[in-house]
Design a protein around this nucleic acid. Structure first.
Lengths: 166, 166
DNA sequence: ACTTTGTTTCAGAATTTTCTGAAAGTTATG
DNA sequence: CATAACTTTCAGAAAATTCTGAAACAAAGT
């Protein structure tokens, strides 16, 4: 396989993976392109490469920077912004986990706390509270696990991975 | 909070969470409704409750049954199918993980194997291979971890959770 | 073998998400 | 301070996803 073909395939595949993971397709493709590009790229180069509009490139780059998956780099003597990707996969996963925990898990926990207090003492209300409590305790455990994961460094991941495996 | 209000809130919230997780909104809402309903429900009851069409209810119920998140139950003397949810949260997570591993992670691993073999010995090709190899090894580790998780039972989860925490 | 009850399918409609392109905004430079 | 280089914003367009309703299908009862 030719290098160009390999690059295109990887970008395409990463885009698909991303869209299944709450990162939109283009956002993931930009990330993929930056991952496999050793030097920093300008918005213009990204646009041209992925055949997307300037507006689209700009919005998704900003989101990537917000998520901490891409860094803005200023080159001396250049007015343009350049972008490079975070290339440590472990860091990438942690950052995505942090975003999604905040955006998705935390709101659910809040709702669970609220609905756990429904009034009524009928059998129906009891059943409802029972299952809500179970989901709640599971979610809290997931929340704490994510906290650990988000704070942990790469070595921790490796060692937990080893523990899991045995 | 009234029971009815609590139920509605939970269904709504679970729908939102689901749609962020590759399970479509309605599918997650049906699952939520079944979770908080002690007895099995018919397609008709689900339709009425969530105000969705029969076609929609049918398609999403089938998907839930495929995923193993909901079971079809036949009641003696009834021609209708009835549905109950898998209520063990740990099992729910495992089943979702299994589906997503197959649908998302495995195709990416395949592509990574392919593109890892690009020809060319320039510095560009070397850099490309280097990052691909890193992503590959990370993904393989994730793949194996997921296998362990999918096979494991609830006690394993608890004990790994404890290990992670210390 | 007809009717009734229930399920499945799927084309087009509705909705949601993402993208474009042009205009407005910002900052550096002569 | 005028112009050029670049970035940001956002309304409407385009694309992708999900939903509906009606028709086809299936199975059981009479």
């Amino acid at each position: 396989m030719k290098l160009e073909e390999g690059k295109a395939k990887f970008i395409q595949s990463w885009g698909t993976l991303g869209s299944a993971w709450g990162v939109n397709r283009t956002m993931a493709q930009i990330h993929a392109l930056l991952l496999i590009t050793p030097e920093a790229l300008s918005a213009q180069e990204i646009m041209d490469d992925l055949k997307i509009s300037l507006g689209n490139a700009n919005m998704n780059l900003r989101a990537l920077v917000d998520w901490g998956l891409v860094y803005k780099q200023l080159k001396a003597g250049e007015r343009k912004d350049f972008f490079i990707a975070e290339k440590d996969m472990w860091d990438v996963v942690r950052k995505i986990a942090a975003q999604r925990k905040k955006k998705e898990l935390e709101p659910v926990l809040k709702i669970l706390n609220e609905v756990a207090e429904v009034e009524g003492s009928g059998i129906e209300a009891e059943e409802f509270k029972k299952i809500i409590t179970e989901i709640q305790s599971f979610s809290q455990r997931a929340d704490k696990s994510l906290d650990t994961l988000i704070k942990a460094d790469s070595n921790w991941f490796l060692s937990t991975f080893m523990k899991m495996m045995k």
